[in-house]
Design a protein around this nucleic acid. Sequence first.
DNA 1: TCCTACGATGGACCAGGTCCAAGTCAATAC
DNA 2: GTATTGACTTGGACCTGGTCCATCGTAGGA
Lengths: 136, 136
Amino acid sequence: MSDLLERLRGRGWRMTAQRRVVAEVLDGEHVHLTADEVLARATTRLPEISRATVYNTLGELVSLGEVTEVTTDGRAKRYDPNAHRPHHHLVCSRCGAIRDVHPDGDPLADLPASERFGFAVSGVEMTYRGVCPDCA
Amino acid sequence: MSDLLERLRGRGWRMTAQRRVVAEVLDGEHVHLTADEVLARATTRLPEISRATVYNTLGELVSLGEVTEVTTDGRAKRYDPNAHRPHHHLVCSRCGAIRDVHPDGDPLADLPASERFGFAVSGVEMTYRGVCPDCA
DNA sequence: TCCTACGATGGACCAGGTCCAAGTCAATAC
DNA sequence: GTATTGACTTGGACCTGGTCCATCGTAGGA
């Protein structure tokens, strides 16, 4: 946790109360929060924090590679603090709950050259869909 | 093409000029259009068509299983008329171009029970990312 | 040809997100 | 400790993609 703050400081991040709170919120619970949920949680610790700052900070964390954005529906993006361990997602079609999963195999290797159309392929995201035990 | 219109009529779809135009636009070019692009193309054939109608019609085609929605960025949904042949997508990180791809293997089988968390897993979407030849 | 329920219209509205000018403050220099 | 300054924050306007709704129009059956 303080790891994250250390890393950010080490990269020349100017440490402000707002950024610390946003980073702590994300790092605290390893769930996949929307920007609005991050804002809500941040607000309880730092009531004056603004929406723009939360969006800015999330954007910076993403470009620093500390969190990743996931879009599982067409709605709000979610922010995944577990960026250092590669993984995919399993999403409940009813309630939207998200779990991190680690499928076997190498999906990149499963895309033959004939199916690459000259693209320089660099990565792949997999989204498994299903119904979670609570919704079943 | 007229296949599609036939199928829809067979399912009790009331055939209107607007629905026909939307279906034809989608079925005509097998690319992945946004709702706004569908609207633009539809408008050239039927100038009075409204945005709401395009959204309604796209929504119906999706629930009939004739087209699928794909969200590759957090922006506009795209509509994929190639719903009857299962496939995944390869997206250019620079320009957003999308190609349909058919990877080897069975990604569903690659998710071990221990990684399913009690979900009834029903499907998986794979989005390959890379840079297309035009952008390279 | 008439009737009517289903579909289309357009304009208001909403959610998620971005932008910007002005004010604030963390970090450096002294 | 204080001054300085450029990076950061703020709040509100604005934008895009999408939905809703009251009203009007029309496809298709009788």
